[in-house]
Every structure is written in C-alpha cells, then in structure tokens.
Amino acid sequence: MVGKKYFKNFFELSLSLAKAEFKLRNEGSYLGIFWYLLNPLLVFGLLLLVFSDRLGNDISQYPLYLLLGVVMFNFFQSSTVESVTSVLKENRWLIKSINFPRESLVASIVLKNLFSHFFEIIFFMIFIVFFKASIIGILYYLPILIFFCSFVFGVSLFLASLTAYFVDLENIWSFAVRLLWLGTPIFYAIDGQTKLYYVNLFNPLYYFITVARDLIVYAKMPDVSIIFGMIFYTLLSFFAGVLVFNTLKIKFAEKI
C-alpha cells in the first residue's frame, strides 16, 4: 500500500510542521494558547455589546448565534491569511533545498488553526451550557468541521500557490476577507433581505455557518439546498485547490 504510507507520512510531516510553528509562535509567551482565543473573544464581546440590543434583538439565542459565526469565520480567516502571507515566503529556502510534498506546508497551517479552533469550540460549549441550549447539538459539529476543513484547505492551497505569481495577493486577500466579514451574516441575520440573500448564495461561508447554526444553536434540520450548497462548495474548493496547487507547484522553487 504505497498510497497509505504516503498519506501517513504526509500527515506526520504536516503535524510536525504545525507543532514546530506552534512552538515558535508561543516561545516565551505566558498566555500561550490564550492569545489565539483573545482575538475572536474580544471581537465577540464587542459585537455582543454593540448589537445585542438592536440588531440582535430579533435573533433568538443571539450570543450563541454570534459566537459560532465569529469562531467559524476566524478559523477561515486565520488559515487563509496565513497561507497567503507565509507559506511560500517564509519557507522559500526550504522549498529550494528539499523536495518534500509542498501541500504539507498548507496542511500544517490548517492543522495549527484547527488546534486553536478546538479551544474556541470548547469555549462555545461553555456558552451553550450557560445559555441552557442543548449541548447534544455540538456533536453535529464534527461532520460539519470535516467539510469546513476541506473547504478551508482548498481555499488555502489555491491562495498559497497564487502567491508565487502575484506578490500583492496578500493585500488583495486581506481586503477580500474584510468584505466577506461584512457580507456574511455573522453579527446580523439575512431574513427577508432579498438582495443580500442572492449575494450570499455565492458566499460559501454562508452555507457552512447556516448549517452549523441550524443544527447546533436551533436544533433543527437545515434546508436541503443549504446542505447541498455546503457540499458543493467543499468539493469545488477542495478539488480546485488541489488542482491549481499541483499545477503551479513545480514552478515554486524557481519563482520565489
């Protein structure tokens, strides 16, 4: 089984890279993992303070609605932004010296962010208990996360491979992420706003966040079309990402 051994080694390499990256980031830091939590939690706290009375008033379980949206978006944002800024730039000499599977550099970033996402989800679970919602729903998050990770991995591969060709992708992407943050119903709800609804049909994050909220916060089955949308964007992103990365990676060592 050549394939199995390859994937095992690939996974181990990605994990090693993620661990190393994690240790380097937290070197000499007393807060460690809490630094990662701090950003989404402060954003959450601030938004809750600002919006809970007005915008969030007609959204039931607004704190949970908001927090789940914030942490899911944060996972997407930190993985993709790091892929754009660091994969090829910080590892250029490594890429020029050893012929290892390049995808593992992207996988390591997703794994590292998955690790801190895990803590955010634990925090979210504490909130579920606090607001007396059903804790069972969180079990649905595992399958959702498998789709979401594949989606994020695909987007990250796509972006990372393009950075070899476009140096200012970093700026473009940080702008795009800000637009996505405002365009995705994270701190507001989309209900009844037709224009916004149609725009969001093209926004993959809308599907993932909606499925997660329906199942976990509201304990109801999401619309079939939303589930299909989630699966569609996962497959699209994963395969397009792998394909583009694979096509472009043979030139990485020369381009960077």
Binding site: E12, L24, L94
Partner: peptide, 24 residues
C-alpha cells in the same frame, strides 16, 4: 535550511527527519 533556530536540537531532529520523508 529546515533547521529552526528557536527549536531545540531534539525538536529539530524530528522536524527535519520528517522533511526528509522519515516516519515518526
């Protein structure tokens, strides 16, 4: 290359080893 200055020698052996395609 591959060696990370802020990691210990032990950690580096594991990192570079896996870059060279060795399993854990």
């Amino acid at each position: 290359v591959g060696l990370k200055e802020r990691l210990t020698m032990k950690e580096n052996i594991f990192l570079v080893g896996s870059l060279f395609g060795m399993s854990q």
